[in-house]
C-alpha cells in the first residue's frame, strides 16, 4: 500500500490535480462565488480553446520540437473559413466552418513540418516565420478589422449548453457543448499516443532520436503527423473561439501561444521531448485558467495580476522540481544495485 501511495504521488498529474483543487478551495474561501457550478462551467468553457491547442502541441513537444505558429493557424483558418462562407452566403452553423478550417489548418501546419523536416531546421525557427506570415496574411489579404457578421446558424452557438444551470447572478449558463470536441480530441490523442505504434514513436523520438531511427521511425514523417494534428486542433480551437466570442478576429490568439505552452509544460510535458500526457495537458490548462481567473475573485489589483500569475508559475516549477528530487532520493535506484548501501 505505501508503495501504491508512492507511485500515485510520483505521478505529476496527481500532484497537479491536488494543487488545482487546493487553489480552488482557497479562492473559494475568500469568495464563495468561485465555487459555484456556473464558475466551474465557465472555467471549463474558457479552457476549451487552450485545451485543444495544448493537445495539438503535445505530440510536437514530445518529439522535442517547439511550435508557436499554431495560434496563427487558428487565426487564419477561422478567418478564411468565415470569409469564404460569408461570400457564399452560408447561413449554417459550426459544421461548415470546421469542414473548411480543419483541413486547411492541418495543411498549413503540415507545411511547417515539411519545411523543417526536409531542410533540417528546428520547427521553432520555421514556426516563427509562419507566425508572422499568417498574422500578416490576415491583416493584409483578408481584413484588418474584426468581423461581426456571423451567419444565422452560428449566432446562438455561444449558449449551446449540454447541462444548463440557473445562476442567481449570471443567469442561465451551463456546460458548453464544445467540451465534447475537447473530450473527443483528448480520447483520440490518448489512444494514438498510448496504443499505436506511431504514437509511441513520438515518445521514442523524444527520448532518444538514434533509437527511433534505428527502430525504423522516420523523423520527418512523425513530425508531419504531429504538425498536421497540431494544425487541425488549432483550427478547431480558432473556429470555436470565434463562434463563442461572436466575432472573427485577424489577430486571434496572438500572444496566447505562451499561455498554451506554459500550460502544457505545467502539465508535466518536457520542452525537450519525450515526456508528457494528455491528462497532464488538460490539468495544466485548467491550472492556468484557475489561477489567471481566480485572481479576479481574490480581488487582486488588476495591474498586479500578471505579476502574481508569473510568481505563481515560478513557485510551481520550483515546487515540482523539489518534489522530483525528494522522490528521487526516496526511491533511489532500483534493480541490481538496489541492495547496495543498506
Amino acid at each position: 500500500m505505501p508503495n501504491f501511495a508512492r507511485r500515485l504521488l510520483g505521478r505529476h498529474e496527481v500532484i497537479l490535480f491536488g494543487i488545482v483543487i487546493v487553489i480552488s478551495i482557497v479562492i473559494g474561501v475568500f469568495n464563495r462565488a468561485f465555487l459555484s457550478l456556473a464558475t466551474i462551467f465557465e472555467i471549463l468553457r474558457g479552457a476549451i480553446p487552450f485545451a485543444l491547442m495544448g493537445l495539438g502541441i503535445l505530440p510536437v513537444l514530445l518529439l522535442g520540437e517547439v511550435d508557436i505558429s499554431f495560434v496563427g493557424v487558428a487565426a487564419t483558418t477561422s478567418l478564411v473559413a468565415h470569409t469564404l462562407l460569408h461570400d457564399m452566403g452560408y447561413a449554417g452553423g459550426i459544421g461548415g466552418y470546421i469542414l473548411i478550417a480543419l483541413p486547411l489548418g492541418a495543411a498549413i501546419a503540415l507545411m511547417v513540418g515539411l519545411i523543417s523536416g526536409v531542410f533540417r531546421l528546428p520547427v521553432f525557427a520555421v514556426s516563427l516565420g509562419f507566425w508572422l506570415m499568417l498574422y500578416g496574411f490576415n491583416l493584409f489579404f483578408i481584413s484588418p478589422e474584426m468581423r461581426f457578421d456571423l451567419p444565422e446558424g452560428l449566432v446562438g452557438f455561444y449558449n449551446h449548453f449540454l447541462i444548463k444551470v440557473q445562476d442567481p447572478i449570471v443567469g442561465e449558463t451551463g456546460l458548453h457543448v464544445a467540451v465534447v470536441y475537447v473530450l473527443f480530441a483528448a480520447v483520440a490523442i490518448w489512444v494514438v499516443l498510448r496504443h499505436t505504434v506511431i504514437g509511441r514513436g513520438f515518445y521514442i523520438m523524444g527520448g532518444n532520436r538514434e533509437v527511433a531511427v534505428r527502430t525504423g521511425y522516420n523523423l520527418v514523417k512523425l513530425l508531419c503527423v504531429a504538425m498536421a494534428v497540431n494544425g487541425a486542433l488549432a483550427a478547431l480551437a480558432g473556429v470555436l473561439q470565434c463562434a463563442y466570442k461572436r466575432f472573427f478576429d485577424p489577430i486571434l490568439f496572438r500572444g496566447a501561444e505562451l499561455y498554451v505552452i506554459a500550460a502544457v509544460v505545467i502539465g508535466g510535458t518536457s520542452i525537450t521531448g519525450g515526456r508528457g500526457s494528455v491528462i497532464g495537458v488538460l490539468l495544466g490548462v485548467i491550472f492556468v485558467q484557475v489561477i489567471t481567473r481566480g485572481l479576479i475573485y481574490l480581488g487582486v489589483e488588476p495591474t498586479w495580476q500578471q505579476f502574481v500569475v508569473g510568481c505563481m508559475l515560478v513557485i510551481f516549477f520550483i515546487l515540482t522540481s523539489l518534489r522530483a528530487r525528494l522522490l528521487g532520493g526516496l526511491s533511489g535506484r532500483s534493480g541490481l544495485t538496489r541492495g547496495e548501501g543498506k
Binding site: H195, T196, R200, G274
Partner: peptide
C-alpha cells in the same frame, strides 16, 4: 529511451518491425 519503461524499451522495436499499427 530514458523516458520509457523497461518493458517498452525491450519490446517496442519488435512491434515496430512487425508492421503492426496498434500496440
Amino acid at each position: 529511451c530514458p523516458n520509457l519503461s523497461v518493458a517498452e524499451n525491450i519490446a517496442i522495436a519488435r512491434w515496430v518491425f512487425s508492421g503492426r499499427r496498434m500496440i
